[in-house]
């Protein structure tokens, strides 16, 4: 579904990403974890086209999308949420999702009832009760769910989620985990960045660990958790 090949990003003299490659197979839920400043959000920006890589390629399916602008990539089935929340703060919760569904209708032509789809999606992420509220009245945790619903309204085949669980209660974050598993079961692929390690370990089949702009480990949750290199990255123990 998604292949990132040898992506390098520089900000001034600083290398934010140093030749990152990873793959998200069709229908997989892949986790991406790593300490703050490791380059996770930068990688998301490269994949969605908000950031131009200095080197490397991004492929969706067989197609090289590296030179496409963000909205063209979205139309090829890429959706995302943002770590620093990017809701439409002058619109209601429902309108936030509706705007995305309507956009889908205008370029996808397969969204007969955007208003109903928006309501259904909000119901699905657990925001059915607040859909008429202005979005700026919601706590941040719920805003992340608004973003998830909005991303789903574009009917993406691949979903990039940037810390959707932060600011959620334990209960809400469990529900989010179930939702993610459901979404993958429906045939979507997901790349998940999340600080809530327990959530990642629970739902992901495969995890990549990013540290200082490089992938330092890849494996199943169990493998990653036991990997001394990962422990070193997180805890500073001298790597064996």
């Amino acid at each position: 579904m998604l292949r990132v090949e040898d992506v390098e990003v520089r900000f001034g003299g600083v290398q934010a990403l140093k030749g990152v490659s990873l793959e998200v197979p069709d229908g997989a839920l892949v986790g991406l974890i790593g300490p703050n400043g490791a380059g996770k959000t930068t990688l998301f920006n490269v994949i969605t086209g908000l950031e131009k890589p200095f080197r490397g390629r991004v492929l969706m399916g067989d197609q090289d999308v590296t030179s496409l602008p963000p909205h063209q990539r979205a139309r090829r089935g890429l959706g995302r949420t943002f770590q620093r929340i990017e809701v439409f703060s002058s619109l209601t919760v429902h309108e936030n999702v509706l705007a995305a569904a309507e956009a889908r209708r205008s370029w996808g032509r397969d969204e007969p009832e955007p208003a109903r789809s928006a309501s259904e999606l909000l119901e699905r992420v657990g925001l059915g009760d607040v859909e008429r509220e202005r979005v700026d009245k919601l706590p941040t945790g719920l805003l992340r769910l608004v973003e998830v619903a909005r991303a789903l309204a574009s009917r993406p085949r691949l979903l990039l989620l940037d810390e959707p669980g932060s600011g959620l209660s334990t209960h809400e974050s469990e529900a989010l985990g179930d939702l993610l598993v459901d979404l993958v079961r429906d045939g979507r692929s997901i790349l998940l960045v999340e600080h809530d390690v327990e959530l990642v370990m629970r739902v992901c089949q495969q995890i990549h660990v990013l540290d200082f702009g490089s992938i330092i480990a890849t494996g199943t949750p169990d493998q990653v958790q036991r990997d001394p290199v990962v422990q070193a990255a997180y805890l500073g123990t001298s790597a064996a």
Partner: peptide, 9 residues
């Protein structure tokens, strides 16, 4: 370890 990586480690 528990604080950083969750219970399993």
């Amino acid at each position: 370890a528990a604080a950083y990586l969750g219970g399993a480690a």
